[in-house]
Computed example of a mutant assay.
Amino acid sequence: MDVPLPFLLLLSVLHLTLTGVFSKHIDHRNLFTQRLCCKRQSHFVYIGQDISGSPVNVDVGMCKSHCGGASRPSHETRQQEYSRHSSMLEFLRSKKTRPRGPSAPESAGPQAQLPSCGMNQVCEPTGMRVDRLLLLEGPREVEVIQECQCEIKLTQCLRVPALRTYYSDTPYETVLDVGDCSRSKGSPEGFSCVPTKFDSEFVETPNKVELIQTVVTCELKESCYRVPYMEYYYEVVNSDGVKEERLKEINIGRCLGGCTTGNRCLLRNLSDPAVCHLWAEKQPSSCVPEGYETHSFLNQHGEIRTVLSITSCLCQN
Protein backbone atom coordinates (compact mmCIF):
# COMPACT_ATOMS: atom_id res chain seq x y z
CA MET A 1 0.00 0.00 0.00
CA ASP A 2 1.34 3.40 -1.01
CA VAL A 3 1.72 5.98 1.77
CA PRO A 4 1.06 9.62 0.81
CA LEU A 5 4.16 11.84 0.79
CA PRO A 6 2.65 14.54 3.12
CA PHE A 7 1.95 11.85 5.71
CA LEU A 8 5.58 10.67 5.56
CA LEU A 9 6.83 14.24 6.03
CA LEU A 10 4.55 14.67 9.04
CA LEU A 11 5.89 11.49 10.61
CA SER A 12 9.49 12.65 10.06
CA VAL A 13 8.83 16.00 11.73
CA LEU A 14 7.14 14.32 14.71
CA HIS A 15 10.06 11.86 15.06
CA LEU A 16 12.67 14.64 15.11
CA THR A 17 10.65 16.70 17.59
CA LEU A 18 10.09 13.81 20.00
CA THR A 19 13.73 12.73 19.72
CA GLY A 20 14.92 16.22 20.64
CA VAL A 21 12.59 16.47 23.65
CA PHE A 22 13.37 12.97 24.83
CA SER A 23 17.14 13.47 24.53
CA LYS A 24 16.96 16.40 26.97
CA HIS A 25 15.80 14.02 29.67
CA ILE A 26 18.18 11.10 29.01
CA ASP A 27 21.31 12.94 27.84
CA HIS A 28 22.97 12.32 31.20
CA ARG A 29 22.55 8.59 30.62
CA ASN A 30 24.28 8.71 27.24
CA LEU A 31 27.61 6.84 27.39
CA PHE A 32 29.28 9.14 24.86
CA THR A 33 28.31 12.18 26.93
CA GLN A 34 29.74 10.56 30.06
CA ARG A 35 33.05 9.78 28.38
CA LEU A 36 33.23 13.27 26.91
CA CYS A 37 32.76 14.92 30.30
CA CYS A 38 35.44 12.80 31.99
CA LYS A 39 38.60 14.08 30.38
CA ARG A 40 42.17 15.11 31.01
CA GLN A 41 42.87 18.76 31.83
CA SER A 42 46.17 20.59 32.14
CA HIS A 43 47.67 20.82 35.62
CA PHE A 44 51.15 22.37 35.78
CA VAL A 45 53.39 21.56 38.74
CA TYR A 46 56.73 23.15 39.58
CA ILE A 47 59.33 20.36 39.72
CA GLY A 48 62.54 22.28 40.33
CA GLN A 49 65.41 23.78 38.32
CA ASP A 50 67.14 22.18 35.37
CA ILE A 51 70.95 22.07 35.00
CA SER A 52 70.89 25.59 33.48
CA GLY A 53 69.09 26.97 36.55
CA SER A 54 65.80 27.56 34.72
CA PRO A 55 62.53 26.61 36.45
CA VAL A 56 60.86 23.42 35.25
CA ASN A 57 57.06 23.25 35.19
CA VAL A 58 55.49 19.98 34.02
CA ASP A 59 51.91 19.45 32.87
CA VAL A 60 51.17 16.33 34.93
CA GLY A 61 47.48 16.61 34.06
CA MET A 62 44.37 15.91 36.11
CA CYS A 63 41.12 14.06 35.49
CA LYS A 64 38.11 16.35 35.73
CA SER A 65 34.53 15.14 35.78
CA HIS A 66 32.09 17.86 34.72
CA CYS A 67 29.02 18.38 32.56
CA GLY A 68 27.74 21.84 31.81
CA GLY A 69 28.57 24.80 34.05
CA ALA A 70 30.80 27.75 33.31
CA SER A 71 33.62 27.09 30.88
CA ARG A 72 37.24 27.38 32.03
CA PRO A 73 39.57 29.94 30.45
CA SER A 74 41.55 28.64 27.51
CA HIS A 75 45.31 28.05 27.58
CA GLU A 76 45.87 31.09 25.35
CA THR A 77 43.85 33.28 27.73
CA ARG A 78 45.90 32.13 30.70
CA GLN A 79 49.15 32.74 28.81
CA GLN A 80 48.08 36.32 28.04
CA GLU A 81 47.23 36.81 31.71
CA TYR A 82 50.65 35.52 32.77
CA SER A 83 52.44 37.79 30.29
CA ARG A 84 51.10 40.92 32.02
CA HIS A 85 53.24 40.15 35.08
CA SER A 86 57.02 40.12 35.42
CA SER A 87 57.14 36.85 37.38
CA MET A 88 54.99 33.94 38.50
CA LEU A 89 55.22 35.22 42.09
CA GLU A 90 53.74 38.56 41.04
CA PHE A 91 50.98 36.76 39.15
CA LEU A 92 50.10 34.65 42.21
CA ARG A 93 50.07 37.74 44.42
CA SER A 94 47.74 39.50 42.00
CA LYS A 95 45.40 36.50 42.01
CA LYS A 96 45.40 36.47 45.82
CA THR A 97 44.67 40.19 46.21
CA ARG A 98 42.25 40.45 43.31
CA PRO A 99 38.73 41.25 44.55
CA ARG A 100 36.25 38.46 44.13
CA GLY A 101 33.94 39.18 41.24
CA PRO A 102 30.28 38.33 40.99
CA SER A 103 29.68 34.64 41.16
CA ALA A 104 28.88 32.82 37.97
CA PRO A 105 25.17 32.36 37.40
CA GLU A 106 23.77 28.98 38.23
CA SER A 107 23.05 26.80 35.25
CA ALA A 108 19.37 26.64 34.48
CA GLY A 109 19.46 23.05 33.36
CA PRO A 110 19.54 20.19 35.86
CA GLN A 111 22.12 18.37 33.71
CA ALA A 112 24.88 20.71 34.95
CA GLN A 113 24.49 19.28 38.45
CA LEU A 114 24.74 15.65 37.36
CA PRO A 115 28.06 13.74 37.67
CA SER A 116 29.38 12.87 34.24
CA CYS A 117 30.34 9.34 35.27
CA GLY A 118 27.13 8.40 37.03
CA MET A 119 26.43 7.77 40.70
CA ASN A 120 28.59 4.64 41.01
CA GLN A 121 31.54 5.77 38.89
CA VAL A 122 34.47 8.14 39.21
CA CYS A 123 36.66 9.95 36.67
CA GLU A 124 40.17 8.48 37.01
CA PRO A 125 43.39 8.10 34.96
CA THR A 126 43.63 5.04 32.73
CA GLY A 127 47.10 5.66 31.32
CA MET A 128 50.19 7.23 32.88
CA ARG A 129 53.57 8.12 31.38
CA VAL A 130 56.77 8.18 33.45
CA ASP A 131 59.03 11.06 32.34
CA ARG A 132 62.63 11.29 33.49
CA LEU A 133 63.93 14.82 33.98
CA LEU A 134 67.51 15.92 34.66
CA LEU A 135 67.34 18.55 37.39
CA LEU A 136 70.03 20.52 39.17
CA GLU A 137 69.87 18.21 42.19
CA GLY A 138 69.83 15.08 40.02
CA PRO A 139 67.47 12.93 37.91
CA ARG A 140 63.79 12.78 38.87
CA GLU A 141 60.83 10.73 37.69
CA VAL A 142 57.45 12.39 37.13
CA GLU A 143 54.19 10.58 36.42
CA VAL A 144 52.06 12.28 33.77
CA ILE A 145 48.39 11.48 33.18
CA GLN A 146 47.72 10.60 29.54
CA GLU A 147 44.05 9.56 29.47
CA CYS A 148 41.02 9.59 31.77
CA GLN A 149 37.96 7.38 31.89
CA CYS A 150 34.89 6.68 34.02
CA GLU A 151 35.64 3.78 36.36
CA ILE A 152 33.35 1.93 38.76
CA LYS A 153 33.70 2.92 42.44
CA LEU A 154 34.96 -0.07 44.37
CA THR A 155 33.75 -0.80 47.90
CA GLN A 156 36.34 -3.53 48.52
CA CYS A 157 40.10 -3.34 48.92
CA LEU A 158 41.48 -4.85 45.71
CA ARG A 159 44.56 -4.73 43.55
CA VAL A 160 43.64 -2.84 40.36
CA PRO A 161 45.56 -2.46 37.08
CA ALA A 162 47.76 0.62 36.66
CA LEU A 163 49.44 1.00 33.29
CA ARG A 164 52.72 2.95 33.16
CA THR A 165 54.64 3.82 29.98
CA TYR A 166 58.42 4.00 30.41
CA TYR A 167 60.85 5.61 27.94
CA SER A 168 58.02 6.98 25.83
CA ASP A 169 58.78 7.88 22.18
CA THR A 170 62.07 5.93 22.22
CA PRO A 171 63.08 2.49 20.90
CA TYR A 172 62.93 1.27 24.53
CA GLU A 173 59.28 2.25 25.13
CA THR A 174 57.68 -0.26 27.50
CA VAL A 175 54.18 -0.46 28.99
CA LEU A 176 53.88 -2.24 32.37
CA ASP A 177 50.99 -2.95 34.69
CA VAL A 178 52.65 -1.82 37.95
CA GLY A 179 49.39 -2.23 39.85
CA ASP A 180 47.68 -0.04 42.42
CA CYS A 181 45.25 -0.38 45.32
CA SER A 182 41.59 0.58 44.98
CA ARG A 183 40.43 3.74 46.72
CA SER A 184 37.87 1.86 48.77
CA LYS A 185 34.95 4.02 49.94
CA GLY A 186 33.80 1.44 52.47
CA SER A 187 36.99 1.44 54.56
CA PRO A 188 36.73 1.85 58.35
CA GLU A 189 37.85 5.16 59.82
CA GLY A 190 41.65 5.37 59.99
CA PHE A 191 42.20 2.48 57.55
CA SER A 192 43.31 2.58 53.92
CA CYS A 193 43.70 0.11 51.08
CA VAL A 194 47.48 -0.19 50.75
CA PRO A 195 50.00 -2.52 49.04
CA THR A 196 51.36 -5.32 51.24
CA LYS A 197 53.14 -7.55 48.71
CA PHE A 198 55.40 -6.49 45.87
CA ASP A 199 57.13 -7.97 42.85
CA SER A 200 59.42 -6.57 40.16
CA GLU A 201 59.68 -6.33 36.39
CA PHE A 202 62.74 -5.77 34.20
CA VAL A 203 62.82 -2.87 31.73
CA GLU A 204 65.54 -2.62 29.12
CA THR A 205 67.16 0.83 28.91
CA PRO A 206 69.98 2.36 26.79
CA ASN A 207 72.41 2.04 29.74
CA LYS A 208 71.31 -0.97 31.79
CA VAL A 209 68.40 -3.16 32.80
CA GLU A 210 66.16 -1.33 35.25
CA LEU A 211 64.08 -2.98 37.97
CA ILE A 212 60.52 -1.62 38.37
CA GLN A 213 58.58 -2.42 41.55
CA THR A 214 55.01 -3.65 41.06
CA VAL A 215 52.09 -4.17 43.44
CA VAL A 216 50.85 -7.76 43.87
CA THR A 217 48.50 -7.68 46.89
CA CYS A 218 46.50 -4.98 48.70
CA GLU A 219 44.97 -5.06 52.19
CA LEU A 220 43.14 -2.75 54.57
CA LYS A 221 45.74 -1.31 56.94
CA GLU A 222 46.20 1.68 59.19
CA SER A 223 48.10 4.65 57.74
CA CYS A 224 51.37 3.34 59.26
CA TYR A 225 51.84 -0.40 58.76
CA ARG A 226 54.36 -3.24 58.53
CA VAL A 227 55.03 -5.27 55.38
CA PRO A 228 57.13 -8.44 55.00
CA TYR A 229 60.76 -8.09 53.90
CA MET A 230 62.84 -11.27 53.68
CA GLU A 231 66.60 -11.64 54.21
CA TYR A 232 68.73 -14.80 54.04
CA TYR A 233 71.82 -15.77 56.03
CA TYR A 234 74.09 -18.78 56.37
CA GLU A 235 73.71 -20.49 59.74
CA VAL A 236 75.98 -23.21 61.17
CA VAL A 237 74.24 -25.79 63.41
CA ASN A 238 75.51 -28.87 65.25
CA SER A 239 73.60 -32.05 64.43
CA ASP A 240 74.82 -35.13 66.37
CA GLY A 241 78.29 -33.61 66.68
CA VAL A 242 78.46 -32.79 62.95
CA LYS A 243 78.52 -29.17 61.82
CA GLU A 244 75.97 -28.43 59.14
CA GLU A 245 75.53 -25.24 57.16
CA ARG A 246 71.95 -24.18 56.50
CA LEU A 247 70.17 -21.25 54.92
CA LYS A 248 68.34 -19.16 57.52
CA GLU A 249 65.35 -17.04 56.42
CA ILE A 250 64.40 -14.00 58.55
CA ASN A 251 61.41 -11.76 57.87
CA ILE A 252 62.90 -8.49 59.13
CA GLY A 253 59.95 -6.39 57.85
CA ARG A 254 59.62 -2.81 56.71
CA CYS A 255 57.46 0.13 57.86
CA LEU A 256 55.41 1.79 55.13
CA GLY A 257 52.88 4.59 54.98
CA GLY A 258 52.82 8.12 56.28
CA CYS A 259 51.50 9.85 59.35
CA THR A 260 51.22 13.44 58.11
CA THR A 261 47.79 14.72 57.16
CA GLY A 262 46.30 18.01 56.07
CA ASN A 263 46.07 20.08 52.92
CA ARG A 264 49.37 20.94 51.21
CA CYS A 265 47.83 23.67 49.05
CA LEU A 266 49.11 27.13 50.05
CA LEU A 267 47.33 29.24 47.43
CA ARG A 268 44.06 28.38 45.70
CA ASN A 269 42.27 30.02 42.82
CA LEU A 270 39.60 32.39 44.15
CA SER A 271 37.13 31.66 41.38
CA ASP A 272 37.85 27.90 41.24
CA PRO A 273 38.95 26.47 44.64
CA ALA A 274 39.72 23.12 43.01
CA VAL A 275 42.75 24.71 41.31
CA CYS A 276 45.89 25.07 43.46
CA HIS A 277 48.57 27.52 42.31
CA LEU A 278 51.17 26.83 45.01
CA TRP A 279 51.90 23.56 46.82
CA ALA A 280 53.89 23.00 50.01
CA GLU A 281 56.74 20.51 50.02
CA LYS A 282 55.67 16.96 50.83
CA GLN A 283 56.44 16.07 54.44
CA PRO A 284 58.66 13.02 55.03
CA SER A 285 57.05 9.90 56.44
CA SER A 286 57.32 9.43 60.20
CA CYS A 287 56.19 5.79 60.24
CA VAL A 288 58.85 4.04 62.34
CA PRO A 289 59.35 0.59 63.97
CA GLU A 290 57.68 0.11 67.35
CA GLY A 291 58.26 -3.51 68.32
CA TYR A 292 61.08 -5.85 67.34
CA GLU A 293 62.42 -9.38 67.77
CA THR A 294 66.01 -10.64 68.15
CA HIS A 295 67.37 -13.48 66.00
CA SER A 296 70.77 -14.88 67.05
CA PHE A 297 72.65 -17.64 65.21
CA LEU A 298 76.16 -18.94 64.52
CA ASN A 299 77.55 -17.76 61.18
CA GLN A 300 80.14 -19.39 58.87
CA HIS A 301 83.04 -17.80 60.77
CA GLY A 302 81.97 -19.29 64.10
CA GLU A 303 80.69 -15.96 65.41
CA ILE A 304 77.33 -15.18 66.97
CA ARG A 305 75.34 -13.02 64.54
CA THR A 306 72.34 -10.99 65.81
CA VAL A 307 69.65 -9.66 63.48
CA LEU A 308 66.67 -7.54 64.58
CA SER A 309 63.29 -7.84 62.86
CA ILE A 310 60.35 -5.41 62.98
CA THR A 311 57.14 -6.72 64.53
CA SER A 312 55.02 -3.52 64.51
CA CYS A 313 55.11 0.10 63.36
CA LEU A 314 53.71 3.36 64.69
CA CYS A 315 53.53 7.08 63.93
CA GLN A 316 56.32 9.01 65.61
CA ASN A 317 55.26 12.13 67.55
Rank of each mutant, 00 (worst) to 15 (best):
P105Y: 04
L278K: 00
S83Q: 13
C117F: 01
L256Y: 14
P125G: 09
L14Y: 03
G241D: 05
L298A: 04
N120G: 08
G253I: 04
Y233F: 12
R129Q: 08
A274C: 12
S239D: 09
V122W: 00
Y232W: 14
C259K: 06
L308T: 07
S200G: 05
Y225Q: 00
Y229C: 07
L9K: 03
C157S: 08
L176M: 13
A112H: 04
Y167N: 06
S296I: 10
V122Y: 03
R132G: 12
V242M: 04
S182N: 02
R226D: 01
Y292E: 10
V242A: 08
D199G: 15
H85S: 11
Q79R: 15
C255D: 01
E201F: 10
R84A: 11
D59H: 00
F32A: 07
Q49L: 15
L211A: 00
V122R: 07
E281M: 12
S184N: 13
G241T: 07
K64H: 10
E249K: 13
L36G: 06
E244P: 03
Y234V: 03
S74Q: 10
P289T: 14
L114S: 08
C259Q: 11
E219Y: 05
L266P: 02
I310S: 00
K221D: 00
L136R: 08
V160W: 05
V288M: 02
V142P: 00
S54C: 09
S168M: 11
R84N: 10
E81S: 15
F91L: 15
F7P: 04
V144Q: 02
T126D: 12
T214V: 08
E281P: 05
G253C: 02
S239A: 05
E281Q: 12
G179C: 04
V242G: 02
T155I: 10
S223P: 01
D199C: 10
R140T: 11
M230T: 13
T217I: 12
L270F: 11
L176I: 08
H277N: 02
N207Y: 09
K243S: 14
C37T: 09
H85P: 05
P206W: 04
E201G: 07
D50N: 15
L36T: 08
I304K: 06
Y46L: 15
L314S: 06
R246Y: 13
S271D: 12
G20M: 01
K185H: 07
L14T: 10
M128I: 14
Q41V: 12
C181M: 05
G190P: 01
V216G: 05
Y46I: 14
L176Q: 07
V142K: 03
Y167L: 12
L9E: 06
R132T: 12
F44C: 13
S103N: 09
Q49D: 10
T155D: 10
T205D: 06
V13E: 09
E137K: 09
P195G: 03
R183S: 15
P125D: 11
E281V: 08
L8H: 11
G291L: 03
S83T: 08
D169Y: 11
Q111Y: 00
C255A: 08
G186C: 14
S65M: 06
P171L: 09
G69K: 05
M230P: 03
L266R: 04
R72F: 10
